[in-house]
Simulated scan of single mutants.
Amino acid sequence: MNKFTPIIPLACLLLAACGSDNDSNTIVTPVPPTPDPAPMQYEFKVTAINLTNAQPLSPLGAALHTSGQFWQIGEMASLELEQLAEGGDNSGLLGLPVVNSSASSEGAVGPGQMIELMLTTTSLMDQKLSLVSMMVNTNDGFTGLNSIDVSQMSVGDYAKMTTRAYDSGTEANSEQSGSMPGPADGGEGFNALRDDVDKVAMHPGVVSNDDGLSTSVLTSAHKFDNPLMAVTITRVK
């Protein structure tokens, strides 16, 4: 009897030779995760010029925030605003929880001097810009910009504006020796005692010794008119 020898296809033989664990030597290279994109950076340049004759301004503070106001006319000044208006200390206002970006000049801004500050944020939504400085040859006078909307500015856009003089209403405008921190007096800065109307108002201006206030250490040179600063806000990035 003839034996029948089955014909096994070559492909089957090759498969048999490979064995059942043919994937055991496959090298798998892991795909690194795609890194998160760097957050978008938005940058604003603030340029300010002191327009007064003889009123140095305390270190200029600028902030970006999405809510709140640094002051309101007719309302009581916050402790942080009082510290700025009486002693020129802007750290309290720049450190408020609503602030997401801030900058401050290194020193006082003299008459005619220009200061430039840069502010950076990762979002434009609802962004507002505020600017603050004390008139240091006063008892509690300050100037600045309060919650200016910059959320719609495009790169290259700029806004020019001026600032006015405000009175925090926390210290009487006595102009007496020892009551003002500026170079005209070199006296006290912040004092927690509030002995004035205790509400923010437009500043009435200084009286001075030349005008008959015999107890004043200020002269007519220290008088000022609005505006106090010329400010330009530019979106640069």
Rank of each mutant, 00 (worst) to 15 (best):
L15I: 11
E43P: 00
Q127V: 05
H203E: 02
K199V: 12
S104T: 15
A159C: 09
D126G: 03
A77W: 03
T120Q: 14
K237G: 14
A16G: 06
S177V: 05
V46L: 15
H222C: 01
T163Y: 05
V207M: 04
D36H: 04
F4V: 14
I27E: 07
N50R: 12
I27A: 08
H65W: 13
V206Q: 00
G110C: 04
P183T: 13
S91L: 12
G19Y: 12
D185C: 08
N173R: 15
T47P: 02
A159M: 15
N53R: 11
A48S: 15
F44E: 04
F142A: 02
T162R: 01
T170N: 02
V217K: 03
V150H: 06
F224I: 13
Q152K: 13
A48V: 14
A108K: 09
L117A: 08
P30R: 14
M1R: 09
G141R: 01
L96Y: 05
P204G: 04
G107N: 10
N53F: 01
T66L: 06
L10I: 11
Q55L: 08
N137H: 04
I115K: 11
L60Q: 10
V200F: 00
E171Y: 12
A16V: 03
E106N: 10
P204H: 08
G182D: 06
V136K: 05
L124Q: 14
N146K: 03
V206A: 02
M118L: 14
Q41C: 01
Q127A: 06
G212A: 07
P97S: 12
T47H: 01
M180K: 10
N22T: 08
V99T: 05
S154R: 14
G92S: 13
N146V: 03
F190N: 03
A63L: 12
L218P: 00
Q113P: 00
S20H: 10
A11T: 10
G88K: 01
H203Y: 08
T26D: 11
A17R: 14
L81H: 05
I27F: 02
P9S: 14
I27V: 14
N100C: 09
D195H: 07
F224M: 15
G141L: 04
V132S: 08
D210G: 15
E171S: 13
S20C: 11
M125L: 12
S154E: 15
V99H: 04
L145R: 07
S208E: 05
S101R: 02
F224N: 06
G156Q: 08
M40E: 15
P97F: 09
T170D: 01
P56F: 04
S130G: 02
G182V: 08
I148Y: 07
S154A: 15
Q152Y: 08
G19I: 11
G92V: 13
I73G: 01
M114N: 04
S133L: 03
N100K: 09
P59H: 10
L10T: 12
V155P: 00
E116F: 02
E82P: 01
D36W: 01
L79E: 13
T26Q: 11
T219F: 11
K223M: 06
N22P: 00
S133C: 13
C18A: 13
P97M: 09
C18W: 03
